[in-house]
Nucleic acid binder design. Structure first.
Length: 258
DNA sequence: GACCAGGCCGAGC
DNA sequence: GCTCGGCATGGT
């Protein structure tokens, strides 16, 4: 919840969060290895929670990758158990359009504003149609800045092409990436985030400023390396686990562990 | 009061 | 094809 994957959850206390899953508000509590969910209406089922948090995936191969290399081992030691949330595709599209040249704290704040002023009764994140119907000026007032037209144009397009995202899910990786990048405000990095977090394409390896720094430092002897070179190395080294490795490196880098 | 943040876009070579 | 400014805004 705190590793920059989702922006709609608020931390209430140790292991306690409020947010929404499947468009329904929910309270989550994680204590001593036990996860519980509570809601006013229907809470997500145990099965749904296991799926949402990807709990049934065997992370053995990931731990082997991370643990067998001294450069990545600290990230595993610190954050063993960290998993990729299987979030809604539209929410990943919107969240990572907002993320461009922004910081996580402020993305959360913008997300909360959109939910409060454009979402439904449960303060869930607004649908494409609701954002499409908003005025760009209103979006700017919520702090989106120059991202306002991007989010709105993408919302307009998706509200009129409701099969667009589900077709991406079925496409081969490179085609899927091209189609995600065709949306306004989405370039290579945001596309990789959408593929990874919204479509569970675990080969995707988003390269932002944090990942670029840590990858240069760990694997390029501190020398310059383009995001494209970094992506190629990650694909070669970690294959289908690259996205998971990225999350460990990103979070460890941001928290000063590596 | 700089500098930075999970970058993208359009213009100009 | 590539490089390079411009872009809104709040946190630090």
């Amino acid at each position: 919840m705190d590793s920059g994957q989702v922006f709609g959850f608020r931390r209430l206390g140790r292991g306690r969060y409020e947010g929404s899953i499947d468009g329904r508000p929910v309270h989550l509590e994680h204590v001593r290895g036990s996860l519980t969910a509570a809601a006013n209406g229907a809470a997500p089922s145990a099965r749904r929670l296991r799926e949402y948090f990807d709990l049934d995936r065997d992370l053995g191969p990931l731990y082997e990758f991370l643990g067998s290399d001294g450069r990545t081992r600290p990230a595993l030691r610190a954050y063993r158990g960290l998993r990729l949330i299987r979030q809604d595709a539209w929410e990943s599209v919107a969240g990572f359009i907002l993320s461009a040249n922004n910081n996580i704290k402020r993305i959360r704040s913008i997300w909360a504003g959109l939910s409060r002023y454009l979402g439904g009764d449960g303060l869930e994140f607004p649908s494409p149609a609701r954002i499409a119907a908003a005025h760009e000026r209103a979006l700017r007032q919520l702090g989106l800045g120059y991202r306002a037209p991007y989010l709105q144009r993408t919302a307009c397009f998706l509200s009129r092409n409701d099969a667009y995202l589900s077709e991406i899910r079925k496409a081969p990786l490179e085609e899927a990436r091209t189609r995600v990048m065709a949306l306004p405000g989405i370039g290579p990095k945001v596309a990789d985030c959408v593929l990874l977090y919204g479509f569970q394409r675990y080969e995707a390896f988003p390269v932002d400023v944090w990942i670029l720094r840590v990858m240069r430092s760990l694997f390029f002897k501190g020398r310059r390396a383009t995001p494209e070179k970094v992506r190629e190395l990650a694909a070669r080294k970690w294959g289908r686990w690259a996205g998971y490795v990225q999350q460990y490196l990103f979070h460890a880098s941001r928290t000063g562990v590596i």
